[in-house]
Design a protein around this nucleic acid. Structure first.
Length: 938
RNA sequence: GCGAAAGUGGCGGAACUGGCAGACGCGCUGGACUUAGGAUCCAGUCCCGCAAGGGGUGGGGGUUCAACUCCCCCCUUUCGCACCA
């Protein structure tokens, strides 16, 4: 065999694995399972760059390692193939998205296969597969068939008591009054409770994309994909009631082994807050108001406020005495009623201005407060004071009740607003002295000067100027004041504790072609007009296929391009005529449950078999980019919980352990005048980069890979130059999996050298045929030193693989090779063990050397080496001796040496004696096997 | 502004629960082999200093016999959120 030839070896073994189905994961429940999953890639037309396979490399190494340790490893791969790019391409070129998608999948599959990943290719699928889409639609119907019962109690699989669960819609109690109105009324009632429902809501409409987007897909008022401007317009849309699951989505995070940052981001996104709802009577103090108060005291706080009261939400009910005005969102339904004739023109023009503003303008105008007085007043229920009602765009209709009580003394936004419009500012919480000092105001002056300070005090303090005949918060610390006022509000029927979320329901319909059709039929009357009643497509009629179209352009209307398929949209069923839903699902739909389908991907009768789901789930290790921290991971968890509630899955959470791989950066080289120089025009030598044409030395900067920077390194580049094993090793050697790190083509070179050295350590590269290196010997016993090196390597590589510390694992293997290449006699047993240790990292070269060592079977399922502590312990070790914390000498001692012996030896050490001369030894610290520190007087 | 993470040689990075800072790799320097070397092998490589020695993990302070590691203050970078009442 000549030298190490990666390309021959790699294609040989990739073929072998494929033919022998080496990595098929049998549904063999007698073995312990491990489910190792990569986040679903979207097959883009660009192909993969070196950053993409980082996570795949990690999961592959881990899977191969665990397979050798006896686990039945489920390690699948598939494609999230619906989505906008293929459709945009279709609009531009007329090529059907299915064609583009298939072409892109073929390319990404080729690249992934070239890296030698150990996927079970028998389980591969794409979300666009008709058989897969069928079950995506089925899950939509499960959501459609489910309502959330907030009060039901149940015990989770760990025996923990829970409240609130999704239940079949037929179990929804129907009020008698509704039932009396007949069948249609009952259906409408049910529709209003379903987890998948239609509602008229202000949505993010993106003109350029011709579709609406979810809140999660809008960033700074522009679309996540493409950066097009987004407007808020009211539209009738499909929504998923994710808010019903808000508490469980937050609570269950505690049970997951996920990065804290991601958990925190999910918590923030759900944005749970605790506070109170309070009603403010609209009108004048007087007998009507008094009558209302009495009624409220008798009947309590109603589920919805009367039309003559404003309901606000606040997290600081303890500051109610400081509420000096009310602000409604401009869209609030009570604005019309409250506006006086004198103010009407101004109010209307303000409302129109706000309505016509794009999301982006709204964000840009933030900071500078704007608003208009309605002319109307309401009464502060704690002190009977008549306070003005304003409208302002800093109050959002979509959060809380769309109305706030403004406490300018203790809320920064209200403070700025009050200052601008000269509204009264009242202190009701006394800040701690440290804050007062900072503001240069005394405790006594605070209440009088609160309006002149630089900012409002918004933290916890002590109640002041807060009492009425029924309740006093004076002197109470904020948490206690909250409890006290809440109790008073409840007993007087004026308010109640409430919990709100930033999370909104998930806007689920898209006006696009390349997505799963929503499997719903709309009833129409004789004239073909929708009646507002809907029917799900029966399960046995799924999937609803996409109609063939020649023109994929968005219609610019809420109907979407599917409305153009005249032959498709009308359906006759049981003598009645229906119109198909013409919206499609968002791209997230397919990736919400693919991990479940991988458990049983070829099932034609069900989405998955329960037994298989029970065996394989949950996903034990899930690796992917942090960009999915909120979107995909929150949506998938939501679906999973609904499926759990409906008895379709056995676990509360889908992904037990989550790891975010760090981004791989690249180096961008620029000339002194800032022009980018592509890699093809750079000479790398003497550690420097020089322009190939001008010879100018180029400055390199580490930056994100992007086409515009010309620094994208396609994965095919290192694959062609060095092969898969080197590429895989370098992907992991750069640094810890989770951190951001730059790719260096010079670094790859070093890895290639390592594999060559490993090869020569075992294989005779001079020989014609495949022969072992002559220094590899059968009939010698390893020396103690060799055994120690071997077992230390086994130990640390095993630990590193368990902890997914691939970079240090590779370092240990390098140390092994460095050591054994200096050994003239290399016992064959040591070489065999090394090959097994190398196998998860660089499987092709390992298989080839395994074969050279005389094995006829693949090592993919060979047992993983076990280290023996007898060999890793050294009999004698070197221990540093410090004097006052500085290393001054070393001694060699037996590991069994006791503290007293070590202390004596250290003090007798001639070098140490020099340092002790003239100083008194105060203390000697001996850490056996580690170090000795002698503390002396100065 | 709020929240989170991170700052270690020329570079990527090691250092498990406080115990020899810089493993491993890149780059660089010198040497060997060679017709040749962008192959391979050997030696060296944190900084200052000929040396003895001294200094050193973003900066400042602290705890400790001992701090990259723990505590306080500050600086910088990256990421996320951003009028959420």
């Amino acid at each position: 065999m000549p030298g190490y030839s990666p390309h021959d070896i790699e294609s040989k073994w990739q073929e072998y694995w494929e033919q022998n189905k080496t990595f098929r994961a049998p549904d063999d429940t007698s073995k312990p399972k491990l489910y190792v999953l990569d986040m679903f890639p979207y097959p883009s037309g660009e192909g993969l760059h070196v950053g993409h396979p980082e996570g795949y490399t990690a999961t592959d190494m881990y899977s191969r390692f665990q397979r050798m340790r006896g686990y039945n490893v489920l390690h699948p791969m598939g494609y999230d193939a619906f989505g906008l790019p293929a459709e945009q391409y279709a609009i531009e070129t007329g090529t059907h998205p299915r064609i583009t998608t298939e072409r892109n999948i073929a390319n990404i599959r080729r690249q992934i296969k070239r890296l030698g990943f150990s996927y079970d290719w028998d389980r591969e699928f794409a979300t666009t597969d008709i058989e897969y889409m069928r079950w995506t639609q089925w899950i939509f119907l499960v959501l459609y068939d489910t309502w959330f019962d907030p009060s039901i109690e149940w015990a989770d699989p760990d025996g923990k008591k829970r409240r609130g669960k999704g239940r079949p819609i037929r179990e929804l109690p129907i009020p008698d009054a509704t039932r009396a109105q007949g069948e249609d009324a009952v259906r409408r009632y049910q529709d209003s409770f379903r987890l998948a429902y239609q509602a008229e809501a202000p949505v993010n409409w993106c003109e350029a994309l011709g579709t609406v987007l979810s809140d999660e897909e809008v960033i700074d008022g522009r679309s996540d994909r493409g950066g097009h401007p987004v407007q808020r317009i009211p539209l009738r849309q499909w929504m998923l009631r994710i808010t019903a699951y808000a508490d469980r989505l937050v609570e269950d995070l505690d049970t997951l082994r996920w990065p804290d940052a991601i958990k925190e981001m999910q918590r923030n996104w759900v944005g749970r807050s605790e506070g109170a709802e309070v009603d403010f009577y609209i009108g004048e103090p007087g007998s009507l108001y008094e009558a209302w108060r009495i009624l409220r005291r008798l009947e309590g706080f109603p589920a919805e406020s009367e039309s003559y009261a404003i309901r606000v939400y606040t997290t600081r009910p303890d500051t109610l005495f400081g509420a000096t005005y009310i602000v409604l969102a401009p869209e609030h339904p009570l604005v019309d009623r409250l506006t006086t004739e004198a103010q009407r023109a101004e109010v209307e023009s303000y409302r129109q201005r706000v309505a016509s503003m794009s999301e982006e303008d709204r964000i840009a105008g933030r900071g500078e407060k704007s608003g208009v007085f309605t002319g109307g007043y309401a009464i502060n229920p704690v002190n009977g004071e008549r306070i003005p009602v304003w409208i302002a765009d800093y109050v959002l209709i979509s959060y809380g009740t769309g109305a706030i009580m403004a406490v300018p003394g203790h809320d920064q936004r209200d403070f700025e607003f009050a200052r601008k419009f000269h509204l009264p500012i009242r202190a009701v919480v006394l800040p701690p002295d440290s804050w007062l000092e900072q503001m240069r105001v005394s405790r006594e002056d605070y209440a009088a000067r609160v309006g002149e300070l630089a900012s409002a005090f918004t933290d916890d303090g002590t109640g002041i100027q807060s009492s009425n005949p029924g309740v006093s918060l004076n002197g109470l610390p904020t948490p206690e004041a909250k409890r006290t006022i809440n109790a008073w509000l409840e007993s007087s029927g004026l308010g109640r504790p409430a919990i709100k979320y930033k999370l909104r329901d998930w806007l689920f319909s898209r006006q696009r072609y390349w997505g799963e059709p929503i499997p719903i039929l709309h009833e129409v009357d004789a004239e073909g007009k929708p009646t507002g009643l809907r029917r799900p497509v029966p399960e046995d009629r799924l999937p609803v296929l996409l109609p063939e179209l020649n023109d994929f352009k968005p219609t610019g209307s809420p109907e979407g391009p599917l409305a153009k398929a005249a032959g498709w949209i009308w359906v006759q069923e049981g003598g009645r005529k229906f119109r198909r839903e013409t919206n499609t699902m968002p791209q997230w739909a397919g990736s919400c449950w693919y991990y479940l389908r991988f458990c049983d991907p070829r099932n034609n009768a069900r989405a998955w078999d329960s037994e298989r789901e029970k065996y394989w789930m949950p996903v034990d290790v899930y690796v992917g980019g942090a960009e999915h921290a909120v979107l995909h991971l929150l949506y998938a968890r939501f679906w999973h919980k609904v499926l759990f509630d409906r008895g379709h899955v056995s676990t509360l959470e889908p992904f037990q352990r989550l790891i975010n791989q760090g981004m791989i950066l690249s180096i961008t080289y620029r000339t002194s005048d800032g022009r980018i120089v592509p890699y093809s025009k750079i000479n790398f030598s003497e550690g420097k980069a020089a322009h190939a044409e001008t010879g100018e030395e180029l400055a390199g900067e580490t930056e994100k890979m992007s086409k515009s920077r010309g620094n994208v390194i396609p994965v095919d580049l290192p694959l062609q130059q060095y092969g898969a094993d080197t590429t895989r090793l370098y992907e992991m050697f750069m640094g810890p999996l989770e951190t951001t790190k730059p790719w260096s083509m010079q670094g790859v070179e070093g890895i290639s050298r390592f594999l060559n050295r490993a090869w020569r350590m075992i294989v005779d590269e001079e020989a014609q045929g495949m022969r072992l290196n002559r220094k590899v010997l059968d009939n010698v016993e390893p020396t103690n030193e060799q055994l120690r090196a071997l077992h230390k390597t086994i130990q640390s590589v095993t630990e590193d693989l368990e902890a997914l510390r691939f970079n240090t694992g590779i370092s240990r293997l390098m140390e092994f090779v460095n050591f054994f290449t200096s050994q003239a006699a290399r016992p064959r047993s040591c070489m065999e063990t090394f090959v097994l240790l190398l196998a998860p990292f660089a499987p092709h070269i390992a298989e080839e050397m395994w074969q050279a060592l005389g094995h006829t079977e693949s090592l993919a399922h060979a047992p993983w080496p076990v280290s023996d502590a007898r060999f890793t312990l050294e009999e004698a070790i070197e221990i540093p001796i410090q004097v006052n914390g500085k290393v001054r000498s070393r001694l060699v001692a037996s590991i069994t040496a006791g503290s007293d012996d070590l202390e004596r030896m250290a003090l007798e050490d001639p070098k140490i004696q020099r340092y002790l001369d003239g100083h008194a030894v105060q203390k000697v610290i001996v850490v056996p096997k580690k170090l000795i520190n002698i503390v002396v007087s100065p």
